[in-house]
Design a protein around this nucleic acid. Structure first.
Lengths: 223, 223
DNA sequence: GTCTATAAAGAGATAGAC
DNA sequence: GTCTATCTCTTTATAGAC
């Protein structure tokens, strides 16, 4: 496992080692010594290539999340070509949002259950800071999806749509972070547990959630 | 703010200070010095009363989550008295699960947006370890709710119910953790943003998600 | 019970030889 | 680019005076 490390650059090995360890243990729990040992590199190499542990984490996050966000916007463009200015089917909007994440999970060399943890833990551990490159990206993506969701859900007011997108985000985040642990809380034997098998389940659930009726207590005058 | 600290015991002040700081910054990020300073206590006091930082965190988590779990089981008992062996209305099951959490949020002295973070962060930061007292509790609670959900959702197979409960957990967890940040990703002006205002929203959404149709790809022979 | 002082270990980062 | 050695800082935890 360590033997084919010689062909790839030290910088690359550090990134791979860091994302693996961050995913497994979290950002704070992993020391530069852990990372450089895992990468078969010298203790000083992180500072040589990245100048600090924090910048390393930024790069780890960015190089996973950026392609996902790009693919999301592309998927939305594809829907635009297919449906023009009409509202897109809700299910396809959700898939445009989620499928890129699952695909990135596969193209990254990580075990699929580690992918979500890289981002989740790096970000949670380091408090609010998202890499500066990523924040405007996320804003653009969420803005684009909110617009389409509002069009696809004409019976809901914009604030409710925003909340429900937020909830859907929670579903995905939680699933990415804990899909390997769902079995811990039950005696039931479970079959396909990967994020892979659960994508359709997630989409089903979120469709239902987004389309749900608004209960009496919430209804204002606007819808 | 520091002035009425003298009447409560040092141990209590340490717990309060710890939960506040853990919520704000996470478990790893907060040192014993931070905690004892916030609590107006001596640096050595945490080790005197709790013997380690880790045990302190266990107590912080346990004393919030235990009453919530107790109240959840009680709420389920109340439904049992009301409906006997018949299936409970889905909405009431969800409220039995979520309302105790919101109420605990209020009875804890914490700002409401901090409550969820205490548990979320302490647990995420420290890896998989949940306090030993809490794990069987959680198993009992989830088991009880799964049974009722299966009865309330006769069209769904048990595995799908389990997944969807898991998703609903994700909605709540994410909402607790980030309901104060939802506004960061939009230009929309938002009104009631607390966990309070959003409880009905969460219940609506989760009802919809749990009741959602199962898409073609997921359907096995069993339902 | 509360304090000071300090032990012991570990962290991130850097200087300078090679 | 890579290494060793080390600096500086902070952490948790403890020992012992009061």
């Amino acid at each position: 496992m360590e033997s084919d490390n010689e062909k790839v650059s030290t910088k690359e090995r550090l990134l791979v080692a860091a994302e693996k360890l961050f995913a497994e243990k979290g950002f704070q729990e992993v020391s530069l010594r852990d990372i450089t040992k895992e990468a078969n590199a010298n203790v000083a190499s992180v500072n040589y290539y990245f100048s600090s542990k924090d910048v390393l984490a930024d790069e780890v996050i960015t190089r996973h999340i950026s392609p996902v966000n790009d693919a999301r916007l592309e998927a939305l463009e594809t829907l635009k070509k297919k449906y023009g200015d009409a509202a897109f089917p809700l299910r396809e909007i959700l898939q445009a949002f989620m499928k890129p994440m699952v695909e990135q999970m596969h193209s990254s060399g990580l075990r699929s259950d580690l992918f979500g943890k890289v981002m989740g833990r790096c970000m949670a551990d380091r408090g609010k800071k998202m890499p500066v490159q990523v924040e405007p990206q996320m804003k653009a993506v969420l803005g684009a999806f909110i617009s389409e969701l509002i069009k696809a859900l004409p019976n809901l007011d914009a604030e409710t749509v925003l909340w429900r997108l937020h909830f859907s985000f929670g579903v995905v985040a939680h699933t990415l972070l804990f899909s390997d642990r769902i079995a811990d809380f039950t005696e039931m034997p479970l079959e396909g547990m990967g994020m892979d098998a659960s994508l359709e389940r997630v989409v089903d659930y979120c469709c239902g959630g987004l389309l749900a009726e608004v209960s009496a207590e919430q209804q204002g005058g606007e819808q």
